[in-house]
């Protein structure tokens, strides 16, 4: 949070962040790649005026994106050069950016497991496992995680009936139980 000041302008205080120049550079490169692709990825219709071309609007957006990205890069580099606080490659910060990749993979694992095991069993498995991975070892916390998982399934699937299909695992169960689980869990 911005350092507290006696007037309200403190909420707009901008502090230099490590890695902002490298991020701005990456965005500029992405913008340049997209601009280079515009010919391939959009159509130009012969005989139509510029404003009705399917290419017009994406070009406008990409032009704005590129110009602002370039300005952001220049201002970030200038700010960094002025302060000299962080290097162009603040490795510690870049490794911080990679940290959530592990959790993104867990998320995708959860996504792949639900259609196989079913929503309730997967949630009861994943939430306590994630809690364990986060460093909590007390049984009370793991139990709370399982309870939150159960409540999530009860609220969203059983009560609100959101569209989450039953798992393939449910097919192995006896008829009555299978239908019940597919419908509510």
């Amino acid at each position: 949070m911005a350092q507290k000041q006696d007037n309200a302008s403190g909420i707009f205080a901008v502090e230099e962040q490590p890695g902002e120049a490298i991020f701005a550079l990456a965005v500029c490169v992405a913008a340049a790649v997209l601009v280079l692709q515009i010919d391939d990825q959009t159509k130009w219709l012969e005989g139509s005026s510029l404003l009705v071309q399917p290419r017009f609007w994406p070009s406008l957006c990409l032009a704005g994106f590129s110009i602002f990205a370039l300005c952001h890069l220049l201002s970030s580099v200038a700010r960094q050069a002025r302060s000299g606080k962080y290097g162009f490659f603040p490795w510690a910060e870049l490794s911080n950016w990679a940290q959530p990749l592990e959790y993104a993979l867990y998320f995708m694992g959860y996504v792949f497991l639900v259609p196989q095991l079913g929503y309730l069993p997967t949630t009861l498995l994943v939430l306590p496992a994630l809690t364990l991975r986060s460093g909590y070892r007390k049984g009370r916390v793991l139990l709370a995680a399982a309870a939150v998982g159960l409540c999530t399934v009860l609220v969203f699937k059983s009560f609100l009936q959101v569209r989450i299909p039953g798992g393939h695992f449910y097919e192995l169960l006896p008829d009555g139980l299978r239908n019940f689980l597919i419908l509510y869990f």
């Binding site: 639900v114 986060s134 916390v141």
Partner: peptide, 19 residues
């Protein structure tokens, strides 16, 4: 606890996007 909350939000996000 923040990390516990994070795990809950991750699981809840799945409902939103998958449904």
């Amino acid at each position: 606890p923040g990390r516990f909350l994070g795990a809950c939000i991750l699981v809840l996000s799945f409902v939103g996007v998958y449904s």
